[in-house]
Design a protein around this nucleic acid. Sequence first.
DNA 1: ATGGTTGAGAATCAA
Length: 265
Amino acid sequence: MRIATWNVNSLKVRLERVQDWLLYAQPDVLCLQETKIADKDFPFLSFLEMGYESVHHGTGRYNGVAILSRVGLKDVQVGFPSHIINDDDEYKTSIQECRIISANCAGIEVSSIYVPNGRSISSQHYQAKLAWLKTLHDYINDSFSAQDQIAICGDFNIAPQDKDVWDPALFIGATHVSEPERQALQNLQNWGLHDGFRKCYSQENLFSWWDYRAGNFHKHHGMRIDLILLSNNLIEKVNFSLIDRNQRKGKLPSDHAPVFVDIQL
DNA sequence: ATGGTTGAGAATCAA
C-alpha cells in the first residue's frame, strides 16, 4: 500500500502534473492540499478515468483538500465533525475552513490535512493555527482508537526538528519551528501517530517544500513540513518512503514535492 | 532592496 501526500498549490495549474505523477508513482492513495478550487470544479471524472475515486472539500481561491484512492473510499468525513468544534471557540471560523477531509481506504483511516500557516508568532493567525491543531487532536482522539489503522497526511506547516530546516538560526522566533507547534505535533505522537518518513531516514536537510523566491530550491533552502503520520500498527510495516523532489523541478512546479510511504500490509 | 515568486482574480491577499 503506497500512501502519498502533495500540496499542489492550485489543482487547475497542476492537474496534468498530478496525472503524470499518478501514472509514474502509482500511489494507492493520494492526499492533496491547496487545490484552490470549488467542489463543482474538482476533476472527479478525470481521476475516475485513471482508476481513482476521489472526494474533495473546497470552496475555491483558498485551501481545499482531497483524497484520491484506487483501493476504495468510504465513510467520508468532510471537515471536522461539528460536535468537535466549540460554538464559542474564538477561532471557529478558521477551524471550519476547508482544511481536512477523511475517509476509510482499504481499512485505513486516511485524513488529508492542510494546517494553517500561522504567518507570524505575534499574529492571530498563529493562535488560530494552534487552535486548529488542538481540534485535530480532539478529532483523532474522539474518532479513532489506537487499534485502528490511521494515516494523517498533509501539509502540517511544522518542521518537526531543526534538522528539517535548512538554516534553523534563521527561523528563531518564526512559525513552523516554534515550541508550541512542535508540542502539538508531539501530542499527536504521544497519542500514537508517528512520522512515516523518519522510519526510513535520519539524515538532515531532506525537504518537501522550498519557497519559490530567491532560487531557494536550487540553493537547497527548504523545510520538511509535509508529513505522513501513521499509527503503531502501520509504522511497523513501513518498508520505504520518499520525497519525490523531481516534482519540484521543471515547468510550473508546486512549491511542495509529493511524499509517500510504502506499507507492507 | 521590509527584498525574492507564484496563484487567484482583478486590487491585493496568502503563502
